[in-house]
Design a protein around this nucleic acid. Sequence first.
DNA 1: TACTTGCCGACTGAATTAATTGGATATGGA
DNA 2: TCCATATCCAATTAATTCAGTCGGCAAGTA
Lengths: 161, 161
Amino acid sequence: MKLTTKGRYAVSAMADLAAMGARVPVALSDVALRQGISLSYLEQLFAKLKRSGLVESARGAAGGYWLVNAPADIRIADIIAAVDEEIRTTACAGGSVLGCQGTTARCLTHDLWDELGRQIEIFLNAVSLEDILKKRVLGMAAVNAPNEQSPDERVYKGAAE
Amino acid sequence: MKLTTKGRYAVSAMADLAAMGARVPVALSDVALRQGISLSYLEQLFAKLKRSGLVESARGAAGGYWLVNAPADIRIADIIAAVDEEIRTTACAGGSVLGCQGTTARCLTHDLWDELGRQIEIFLNAVSLEDILKKRVLGMAAVNAPNEQSPDERVYKGAAE
DNA sequence: TACTTGCCGACTGAATTAATTGGATATGGA
DNA sequence: TCCATATCCAATTAATTCAGTCGGCAAGTA
């Protein structure tokens, strides 16, 4: 999972829309001012957000963008996936185990990056736009102890993949 | 937290040292061969690892690098911090809240990136080199439910809830 | 001495991010 | 109808970072 300002901009902008109310067209120029992001760059991001079905738009004067779903139903992972496309975290090419090429240590770390990617995805899937607006995010970080417990106790969900 | 091949290379190389035994000098040229990483690039990484006190070295023939501590006492977070230096995940400059400049929505997302960084750090701190060698990594991913609130119908953590 | 290895700094190619520029098309209101 | 305001669209650029290269020097061993 890439964690760049690109994804952060997108989340900030989406939170901005959410704060402005339901199905009210919000002009990107306003968002740009409030969030301190260049208008043209926002346009590129929203083209992707729209392509992913997260927002709708109206052209012309009094036009703008608005959220398709309620903030409670928009997960942060959806937003970042829309603008950052690539989710791969393992060193192995193509996500296939074949990429490890038979070397030992790299295959050992394979599990690590795999699990880290899952960890990040679980987190970003657990947080909605509404959680952000209502400041319910702090204190969510957690991790299971290494491998001694029964698999049934795991809280992890099989990430989208 | 940056998650690039840089950190992955470093972890792979450290796992390689760990697998070779305690305080045995391992030449980087051997590590480069086994892990498929360019020697010169490895040298740069190990300069940082040494500066951080994770490895020691001996020059000359039969020289090489070895781990200062036991694999069980070396956490992945230490390795990545050593080579990637920067851990900042918030959009706010300098890690200071002042970077938010009074805009509302960016400050809202501040908590999110803060917590995500904490999540990643908790995970990478919970895993040691020994865990990797003994393949105890899978199943550690987890997350707490969002901050105390009346439970609604939404599924935060997937089917396991 | 010859060889191996760590050490050091400057440089380069490739990729990506972030942003810019210059338009075209649609819409509502004066 | 005209015009300001918007989304839309494509191409280009500037800056950054990653990943890797290159050449040479220092130190230790046989």
